[in-house]
Design a protein around this nucleic acid. Structure first.
Lengths: 218, 218
DNA sequence: GTCTATAGAATGATAGAC
DNA sequence: GTCTATCATTCTATAGAC
């Protein structure tokens, strides 16, 4: 029935489970993004996934377990993307690639970003532990890197935390507020060209704003 | 009972209504911010306002009417604040005061900003008309102003829309994501000094980022 | 204008046949 | 592993006495 397994492969119980879980998770991400945790109903999710509601509860015992899994998936994408920060020690390259990647993620996974935003907005009732461990560790290590750039004179002195918040908010805005952006753009999604312009605008303002323009370096 | 009327003034029906509506609206803003539209229950709102649930339905017939009123109040604050943009024709002054005011609003009315963010996140089911009229008009008129600054050589050429989105997202982040910011700040709200530093960081990066630093002007 | 009691509707979750 | 029928709960909203 489901076609997401390689053709010709036998539909074992394991593949059936994998396929259905994937269908449910994709549907859940969309519905949770649209309606929040409580606004989303398991009926909606099941209908969107194309399976009976009872089956949804067969694969994910409770709505909360399903939600946790959705948030976990998003968080993993965020953290892996953030590693682009480390690929080079030059602030221009590091920040350009990091911002660029964050913008791309906002475009590719808008629902993921929305579920995350919704979760933080409501006080992180489900993923508070993530904030206190993974996100905190990641942030602290990047603050050290940025402070080194400052002490080396590669960028002008700015508080690294507020610089990071600026990058996060600006890039995620294109996912979380894309409905507002579309409305202001004659009810059309940003074209590829418009999105590239937005990306360049964000990168150039931030890099120039911290005095990290390429021509600043000997 | 309620003490928000001037002492000594007779508790007429009108003042009772005004007092209770204010109590309910304040409670509703907090609860809607915390739980979203559907996550919020009228019981919670009534309990927080200190009145029986039935009375809430006496003043606001449905949960949706109450929600609309909350969003309307927030929207009014946003729009009035945005007028600071017009007070002077110099980009450094205009943008500095606009960003500064938006940061202050994020601090003073975090719940309002959260309800707004939640509403956009879910596709603006209630206030779509506001986006298409008031917000759109305001944005278009400011785009013209920014474009004039560019043609006058006061700032370097950047797309005004994406500059505005950057200002909105960066400033509202301090309201919408304040739970995350607090968690990363040793579970403490930003102190006044920290908040001033954040504000200065945001203003300086954006102004320098668009080439509008004061010393750039003859 | 206040408040108790409850109607009416929607939803999360499960039982049990297939 | 699938699906119908249904229970149990929760919530919005109202009726009606005070």
């Amino acid at each position: 029935m489901s076609s997401s397994s390689p053709a010709g492969k036998k539909a074992t119980k394991a593949t059936i489970r994998a396929d259905n879980e994937k269908l449910i998770l994709e549907a859940a991400e969309a519905v949770f993004a649209e309606s929040g945790f409580r606004g989303a109903t398991t009926s909606q999710i099941a209908e969107r996934a194309g399976i009976p509601k009872a089956n949804l509860h067969y694969y994910f015992p409770t709505k909360k377990v399903l939600y946790r899994q959705v948030v976990h998936n998003i968080f993993t994408i965020w953290l892996e993307a953030a590693n682009s920060f480390d690929d080079c020690d030059d602030p221009v390259s590091a920040l350009s690639s990091y911002i660029s990647l964050k913008m791309d993620i906002s475009r590719q996974y808008p629902n993921g970003s929305k579920v995350w935003a919704n979760e933080i907005l409501h006080g992180a009732p489900v993923i508070q532990d993530y904030l206190e461990t993974s996100l905190r560790d990641w942030t602290q290590s990047r603050v050290i890197i940025i402070n080194r750039w400052i002490s080396e004179g590669k960028i002008r002195p700015v508080d690294p935390n507020y610089l990071l918040y600026m990058i996060w908010s600006t890039t995620q805005h294109y996912a979380d507020f894309n409905h507002q952006i579309e409305t202001l753009n004659q009810h059309s999604p940003l074209t590829d060209i418009q999105f590239e312009t937005a990306k360049k605008t964000v990168i150039s303002i931030i890099l120039q704003g911290i005095g990290a323009t390429p021509n600043d370096r000997s």
